[in-house]
Design a protein around this nucleic acid. Sequence first.
DNA 1: CTAAATTTGTGCTAAAGAACATAGTTTTCA
DNA 2: TGAAAACTATGTTCTTTAGCACAAATTTAG
Lengths: 233, 233
Amino acid sequence: MAKRQISLLRSIEDVFTFWDVLTHDERNFIQNSYTIHHYKKNEVIQCEGDEPTHLMILAIGKVKVYKNGFGNRAQIVRMLKPGEHFGYRAIIANEPNSTTVTAFEDSTVYMISGENFLSILRHNNAFCYRFLEELSFDLAESDARTVNLTQKHIRGRLAESLLFLKDNYGLEEDGATISIYLSREDLANHSNMTTSNAIRTLASFVNESLIAMDGRKIKIIDEEKLRKISKMG
Amino acid sequence: MAKRQISLLRSIEDVFTFWDVLTHDERNFIQNSYTIHHYKKNEVIQCEGDEPTHLMILAIGKVKVYKNGFGNRAQIVRMLKPGEHFGYRAIIANEPNSTTVTAFEDSTVYMISGENFLSILRHNNAFCYRFLEELSFDLAESDARTVNLTQKHIRGRLAESLLFLKDNYGLEEDGATISIYLSREDLANHSNMTTSNAIRTLASFVNESLIAMDGRKIKIIDEEKLRKISKMG
DNA sequence: CTAAATTTGTGCTAAAGAACATAGTTTTCA
DNA sequence: TGAAAACTATGTTCTTTAGCACAAATTTAG
C-alpha cells in the first residue's frame, strides 16, 4: 500500500532558491542547459571518490548525504529536502566527492554542469556570496555535529536525531508524526550508533511515552522531554 | 628556560594570502584600517557565543579553534598557523561565533573589521571566491573529522592527531620532533579522548617504538606504522 | 625560594555500547 | 503468489573507554 505520491514538478526557477540573483542572460543560459534526472528509492546519485560533475538541486524527494567509514559503518552528514543544493562543494574545491548521496525516496534532481556553475560563480558576485553563506552555515553545523556525536550519550544522540528530523521535514497532518520514514539503520547512521542500539533506544523512548511508533512512522509525544534528553547528552 | 622567540613580524600584505586578488583601492583601504593585536600564551582571542567583529589573520604563533561541549570537555576543531584566517565564518553567516579561539603560544593577529570585510567580499568576486574555496575545504575536513572521531578507536585517533600535527606544523631541524608542543590535555581534546587515555596511549606508542617523548616534545620514529594505525581505526 | 597550582603518570572500577546470535516480521520481486 | 531478502526485535557476552583516586613531577606565582 505505497501511497501514490503525485508530486507536481516545480520548474527550476521555482525550486532553485538562488534564482533571484541571476541575470537575465544567466537565467537563459541555465534554462538552455540544465538537465533533469529521476532516481528511484535507494538509488545512488553521487559517489564518494568520484569526480564531481554537476551542481544539483533537489526538486522532489529526500536524499541522504553520507560518508562510508570503517567496517560497513556509514555516517549520514546531511539530509536534504526539495530546494536544497548538493554536489557543488567538490567542484569548488576541485577535488573528488567527499560524500555519497542516495535517494531516500523517489527523487527528481535538476543538474547544472560544473563548468556552467563555475562560470556563473566567477562572474556573478551575489551568486557566489549565496554559496559562501550556505557553506558558512554548513560548516558550523558540521562542527557542532562532531561535538554532539562524540560527546553525547546514545539517548541524547537519538533524541537529537528525532528532533532534527522533525525540525527539518516537519510533521504530518496529525501534528505529531514525523514526515520522513527512516529505517532503523538510517536512524542509527545518523546518530552514530549500531542498528541494535537504535532499536533498543527507540523502544525505551516508547516505554517512557516520549514517542509512539507504527513501523517506520514515529510520533513525537513529549517534545519537551526529548529536548531535555538531547541537550543533556 | 623559555626560548626567546625572535619572530620578525611580516607585513599584512605578506601574511594575508588573499592579498593578490585585492584591487589597488582595496589594498589602501585595508592598509589604512587594519589593526594589530598581540596575545599571550593561553589568552582567549574570540569566544563562542559572542558576536563576531573581525576577519582575523594569524601573523605569528599558533592558535586552537574549539567548541566547549558537555561537562568540561572541549573539542578542538581546527589548529592554525601563520597566514591562516579565522573569525570570518560567523560574520558571513551573520550569527554568533560558533567556536572559541585561544593562543597556544604568544601570537600576533591582524584584524579587519567585519564591515570592511563584508564590503570587499560584496565587491570583489575573486576575493569572495577565495573564501568560498577555503570553506569548501574546511567543510570536507570537518565532515571527515566527524567520521574519524566517531568511528576510529583511541589508538587510531591519537595516531591521526600526531600525524596531523606533523603534517600541519612540520618537524624541527632534527627531522623527527613535531614543531608544536601540546599539553596531554590539548592532545586529548584534539583526538576526542580523556587526558588519562591520551597519556596511556602515548606511553604505549613509546613502548612500541612508534614515537619518543621528552616532556611535551614528541619525536616520530615510525611514521609508516603510525599511518597504518591511523588508517585502520 | 618556597608554597600552591597545574600537569603528568598509573592503577582500579564501572558503565556504555559494540558484537554476535537468533528468531520473528515485513518487504521485494521474479 | 511464494520464496528470498531485508528489516526489526531481543538476549547475551565482551571490549573499550570513561571516571575516579592518588602520587609524582613540573610549572607558576607570590
